[in-house]
Design a protein around this nucleic acid. Structure first.
Length: 648
RNA sequence: GCCGUUGUAGCUCAGUGGUAGAGCACUUCCUUGGUAAGGAAGAGGUCGUGAGUUCGAUUCUCAUCAACGGCUCCA
């Protein structure tokens, strides 16, 4: 007999070779009907795989992350079976479940050999999958010797699976079959296809083989499945809801920004409403930076080629810059970063250690030639306005400065109520030294450790990622997700041990020597484009009062009270409160509805009663009637909310 | 840049080988109405752009631009 330890600590004895599914049955039939897979000694297994030795066992159902992953991976196999029956001769690459935060479903990459697949085909495939699922075929695991596996796939002329086999050792190769479909697969799988009750193939996309753009492009079909139609419906509804929060939709609805074919792709024009948001953000940045000892500077949008040779941008990042324009025999580039200009400002006057840390800030406009397929609303654009600053400091000052920058992030995030983010320590890749990264192996190690120590001692939770550093040094990135699940770097705090030397930046030390400062590049508010895109989604368009382009709408009950409404408008304007009167000849219900939908935070309803008492009936967007107040009381309260930048 | 889809009024969308339609928004008039849609009339589009097929193209074909969904990329 073998001992099986369950998650609650209970130990049960079974005959060797028992499966997780049989164990589930021994506990309860109901449980057995839900088991998708099993965690055996920390590894996810088929629920139908015999357990031969003592083990810790956790039964996995739809409620477990690993249960879902197994379910979706098995769904990918089911889809492959359907594809093979509709498109004979198709060759498959890999078909994993989606595992990233917030993602649901699976895909399968395939080579259809020139056949194009359409939306219509997806519907046919769904139908086929439903048929196959109903048959309830078991997923059958088989261990196969490598030689036999090689023979099988070379017989089929399947170069993709042969390629996968190359990386596998004899003895670790398994095939899985269900119905008429057999695939090289590590597994695990759910017991049978009958679990898959609701199927939706979501889209067709191209994907480079092995994620390398030099390779052939395969066809990728995405799909999502659920154990019940209800869950699929809920999921689709959720997607619809997310679309409503998409910053591109909100940006249009709220009159934040526009783009135009004649201006060019990725070039944002900020409408008056968007410009108000920008001005408020810049005011916040100015106040914060002023308090933290930064000085503001302004630099031009272009510079000569020679500066970008010095900075290292041209050798490392020419492809991401707009091509140069030639004037008077010189090449000029649109700037893709502000740092070189700022370095020149540092160098403009001799510096001593007494001048350090030297902190200069600018909402700098930069231009980046992003690939056309990468552009994405406000989140990925070609002209952006960075909340940029550079701190030039000594090695001794570095830690305190770097820490202060992190603290500034956190202060900002509090204001915006941003609590879902990931701090990412972005490190270099040693094998890319001299290509993607400046070739200074020792300095890389040293500064990476320095940054890590700041994070650890500040007790900031973070994750480490290789090959995400800037070319001049490691950085801390703050990662966020758009409503449709795309990941972006919102803010960044970077160390630069390289450009100070490239630009021959110097300061005089206390013992009258010369030294090169370390540089911190930081952008806690990222760029206006990405930050406002993020804020629109974060607040679902309901911006806090201090950021709202229009803060108050005055709604007279009828024309008779227009004068009174105008007098209130004047008072609000005296306090720089952004307000308008709705002077349309509409009923109050209509005015309220329209104002609610346009997400103006405060509505002031004024009629006979309010006019005689010199009051306003206050209504808060999304919350309804708050009752009557005197105009002065209302002004005092909203002023506090604006000045304190209250989060909601 | 690559694969795929889409492109009709300010917005959301319908439609057709014989030069276009709805709802909302807009304008005017009636209505002066107390907390999420009062009524009527009107104006508004060379159907993304260019070329081809055709007696005739917004509709079919090709090219091009842009947007969208992915891939690659993201200093």
């Amino acid at each position: 007999m073998i001992k099986i330890t369950l998650p609650d600590g209970a130990v049960r004895e079974y005959a060797p070779g028992i499966t997780a599914l049989e164990i589930a049955k021994s506990i309860s039939e109901g449980l057995a009907r839900k088991v998708l897979a099993a965690n055996v000694n920390g590894q996810v297994w088929d629920a139908t795989r015999p357990i031969k030795k003592d083990a810790a066992l956790k039964l996995l159902t739809w409620d477990d992350k690993d249960g879902k992953t197994t379910f979706w991976h098995s769904s990918a196999h089911l889809m492959a079976e359907a594809v093979e029956s509709l498109f004979p001769g198709v060759k498959f690459w890999v078909g994993p479940a989606l595992t990233k935060e917030g993602e649901k479903g699976f895909y399968y990459d395939m080579d259809l050999g020139g056949t194009k697949i359409s939306e219509e085909d997806l519907r046919k495939l769904e139908k086929k999958m439903n048929e196959l699922a109903k048959s309830g075929s078991n997923y059958i695991r088989k261990e196969i010797p490598k030689a036999e596996a090689l023979q099988y796939f070379s017989g089929k002329g399947d170069e993709y699976k042969l390629d996968l086999l190359q990386g596998l050792q004899d003895g670790e190769i398994t095939f899985y079959s269900q119905g008429n479909f057999t695939d090289l697969c590590r597994g695990p799988h759910i017991p049978h296809t009958g679990f898959i009750k609701a199927i939706k193939l979501t889209n067709i996309a191209g994907a480079y083989w092995k994620n390398d753009e030099k390779n052939k492009m395969l066809t990728r079909v995405y799909g999502v499945t659920f154990p019940s139609q209800k869950e699929l419906d809920e999921y689709l509804l959720l997607l619809e809801e997310a679309k409503k929060r998409d910053h591109r939709k909100l940006g249009k609805e709220l009159g934040i920004y526009t783009m135009d074919d004649d201006v060019g792709p990725g070039l944002i024009m900020w409408l008056p409403n968007g410009t108000i948001i920008i001005e408020e953000l810049e005011n916040l940045a100015k106040e914060t930076e002023h308090a933290a000892g930064y000085k503001r500077v302004i630099t031009p949008h272009i510079a000569k080629e020679s500066m970008y040779l010095t900075s290292g941008h041209l050798p490392y990042y020419a492809e991401s810059m707009y091509p140069p324009m030639e004037l008077e025999g010189e090449k000029y580039y649109l700037k893709s970063m502000n740092c070189p200009h700022h370095h020149k400002i540092f160098a403009a006057e001799p510096k001593s250690y007494r001048d350090l840390p030297y902190r200069i800030a600018e909402y700098g406009t930069v231009y980046r030639y992003e690939q056309s397929g990468e552009l994405f609303g406000l989140m990925r654009v070609r002209c952006l306005h960075m909340n940029d600053a550079h701190i030039y400091c000594t090695k001794e000052q570095f830690e305190a400065e770097f820490r202060a920058v992190n603290e500034m992030y956190i202060k900002y995030f509090k204001i915006f109520g941003i609590d879902k983010y990931v701090m990412r320590l972005s490190l270099h890749s040693p094998e890319k030294l001299g290509q993607k990264y400046v070739n200074e192996p020792e300095l890389w190690k040293e500064t990476e450790e320095m940054v890590r120590q700041v994070l650890i001692s500040s007790e900031i939770p973070y994750m480490e990622v290789q090959d995400e550093a800037a070319f001049y040094g490691p950085k801390i990135d703050v990662q966020i997700y758009s409503v449709i699940g795309r990941e972006f770097t919102l803010a960044t705090n970077q160390v630069d041990f390289s450009q100070g030397r490239s630009f021959k930046l110097q300061y005089t030390t206390a013992d009258n020597q010369s030294d090169t400062p370390l540089i911190i590049h930081r952008a806690p508010l990222g760029t206006h484009e990405r930050f406002i895109g993020f804020l629109l989604e974060h607040y679902a368009g309901k911006l806090p009062v201090w950021l709202s382009p229009l803060q108050v709408k005055i709604l007279p009950i009828s024309d008779k009270f227009l004068d009174y409404a105008q007098s209130i408008l004047q008072k609000l304007k005296n306090y720089d409160i952004r307000a308008e009167v709705d002077d349309r000849q509409e009923k109050i219900g209509k005015k309220i509805r329209d104002t609610e939908l346009s997400r103006v935070p405060y509505m002031l309803v004024v009629g006979e009663k309010e006019m005689t008492e010199n009051k306003v009936a206050v209504r808060r967007q999304g919350r309804g009637d708050l009752g009557a107040k005197t105009v002065d009381d209302f002004i005092n309260e909203i002023n506090i909310e604006i000045k304190e930048r209250t989060a909601e």
